[in-house]
């Protein structure tokens, strides 16, 4: 659910107000709640949730990284440039906003994943068939590039030229695949 004020961030606060017998439901993100002065609601004991656990796992106190009160340095907040979710929001909600968040928070994510996934942080399972071809090509190219560097430092220039040609053909293949796959 999205915050009803900014329509951008996920709502972290859900509450029901009853004023003079009239019931209204409110769904706000933390920031808007703060701005609207509804903060007192969750300043008290809040429920224990997965998100608390997640933040706890990181030995991380979200209050340190709350969107800074000063409006002069907003660029310092770590956020995803596609869905604009911030890392501290992720810790609060325990859910990502979009696929790109995995890239945007890659560094911070590693320890999180290791803790959540029994020490693992690299996928070792199924590769989707359609986009999978590209992945194995890219892996091959990366390996060849390492070999290229090696042969250059060893001054084996003939071999390096061969490898370079090989990389070029693979890159052409990859580009062709990318087009038909329709990124």
């Amino acid at each position: 659910m999205i915050c009803q004020e900014c329509n951008q961030r996920p709502a972290a606060l859900h509450f029901t107000k009853i004023i003079n017998g009239e019931k209204t439901e409110v769904h706000l993100c933390e920031k808007c709640a703060q701005e609207k002065g509804e903060m007192f609601i969750f300043n008290g004991e809040s429920g224990f949730s997965f998100n608390n656990l997640l933040a706890g796992l990181l030995n991380f106190d979200p209050s340190f990284q709350k969107p800074s009160q000063s409006p002069f340095q907003p660029e310092k907040i770590l956020h995803c440039d596609q869905c604009s979710m911030t890392f501290s929001q992720f810790l609060k909600v325990g859910r990502f906003g979009c696929a790109h968040c995995y890239k945007a928070f890659e560094e911070q994510l590693k320890p999180v994943l290791r803790r959540l996934q029994g020490g693992n942080w690299i996928h070792n399972g199924k590769i989707p068939k359609r986009i999978g071809g590209g992945i194995s090509l890219r892996k091959q190219i990366e390996e060849l590039k390492i070999a290229l560097k090696e042969s250059i430092t060893n001054e084996e220039f003939e071999k390096a030229a061969e490898i370079r040609d090989e990389i070029r053909t693979l890159e052409k293949k990859l580009a062709a695949k990318g087009q038909e796959g329709g990124e």
């Binding site: 325990g94 859910r95 995995y102 942080w121 996928h123 070792n124 892996k139």
Partner: peptide, 16 residues
């Protein structure tokens, strides 16, 4: 993505 596998909204499901 290659490293994280199938990307899911919760990191407890990512990978497979």
């Amino acid at each position: 993505d290659e490293n994280h596998g199938y990307l899911t909204s919760c990191p407890t499901n990512v990978g497979t």
